[in-house]
Amino acid sequence: MAEVWAAVGVVASIVQLVDFSTRVVSRLDEFCSVAKEIPKSFRHVKTELPLLATTLEQLKSAIDATSEANGSNKALLAVITGCNEQVAQLDAILEKTLPKASDSLRTKGMKAIASLHHDAKVESITTALQNYIGILTFYYAAASSTLQPLTDAKLCKIRQWLSAPDPSTNYQKALKLRQADTGLWFLESKEYTRWKTAATSPLWLYGIPGCGKTVLSSTVLHNVLEHCQGDPGKVTAYFFFDFNDAQKQNHEMMVRSLLCQLLQQSIRIPASLDTLFSSSENGQRQPSAHALLETLRSMIHELPQVYIVLDALDECAQRVELMETLEMIAE
């Protein structure tokens, strides 16, 4: 029942935001009819707001059409709230700077000059709206997707082609060694909370061999997996390097494993990976390490939020290549 109410809340918020953005566009149209031209910084907004409204309408239709519970509603509400705040800021700027038909020539001139001082803010709002539209488009695709990852033949073929080692065996082994409440001190720390909530936020844990880093990594991973559960916009990929497994000492195998995990959690085969697979003669030959890394970069950008957990970096045989890969991910 709670999920049903959440869906209703999302739909209601969408309707309100569509109405709000439509009114802002009308205000821009009114200004254009008065001044014959709108300030340069507002032109992109006039393009983005109708796109936002269209995306929201598509998302509403997809939510209305599905009868399944969707754990992404809470995340969607946050995105819609963020959109609403940006549109509200834009509306306030328009109220101050865009002249009306009833304004005197002097007032119109003063407002035109004042609008120039808001260029940077308007551009910032436009960028934020573009990001939100990207996220909403992702959720629309998730809500309307019919892909069945476990049965899609091409998906299975790509997974076989990647030939990635399975890090879940290391994860399960570490979980068995973990005692109840182990690592709670870390999960409750400010550093971990910041890493979990901030964008592009790397966090490095270090310690002497045998101090329990792998068990702590399993604690972190378990917490993150629970955090992402039910929300297609939040995904987790991980890798455990391992002295006892040659495949898990190779940084390229780590990249392949991360690609495979992101693929498994995607609502459809990502365009970047599909292109790489096709350019490799549909799996008849293997791609370069650089091509794999670039594809990983693209796949990360295609998702709203990605958590990556890596353990035992000192057990990787190619330290230089690994550090270059970590720098790319951190960017």
Results as ranks from 00 to 15, higher is better:
Val4Ala: 15
Gly9Phe: 06
Ala12Asp: 05
Arg23His: 08
Val24Phe: 14
Phe31Thr: 10
Lys36His: 12
Ile38Gln: 06
Thr47Asp: 12
Glu57Arg: 15
Asp64Arg: 15
Ala65Arg: 07
Glu68Tyr: 11
Glu68Lys: 12
Leu90Ala: 00
Leu90Glu: 00
Ile93Asp: 01
Pro99Phe: 01
Leu105Asp: 05
Arg106Asp: 11
Ala112Tyr: 11
Ala112Met: 14
Ile113Cys: 09
Val122Thr: 02
Glu123Leu: 07
Ala128Cys: 10
Phe138Met: 10
Ser144Trp: 00
Ser145Trp: 01
Ser145Tyr: 03
Leu147Cys: 12
Gln148His: 10
Gln148Thr: 13
Thr151Glu: 07
Lys154Thr: 10
Gln160Trp: 07
Asp166Phe: 01
Asn170Asp: 15
Leu177Gln: 14
Arg178Tyr: 08
Asp181Thr: 10
Asp181Trp: 09
Thr182Phe: 14
Thr182Trp: 09
Gly183Gln: 04
Leu187Pro: 02
Leu187Ala: 02
Lys190Val: 14
Arg194Pro: 08
Ala198Val: 10
Tyr206Gln: 11
Leu221Glu: 00
Leu221Gly: 00
Leu221Phe: 00
Val224Tyr: 01
Asn244Lys: 15
His251Gln: 13
Leu258Asn: 04
Ser266Asp: 04
Ser279Asn: 15
Glu294Tyr: 07
Ser298Cys: 08
Met299Gly: 03
Leu303His: 15
Pro304Ala: 04
Gln305Ile: 08
Tyr307Asp: 04
Asp311Phe: 03
Asp314Pro: 07
Arg319Cys: 11
Val320Gln: 11
Glu321Ala: 08
Thr325Tyr: 00
Leu326Met: 01
Glu331Ile: 03
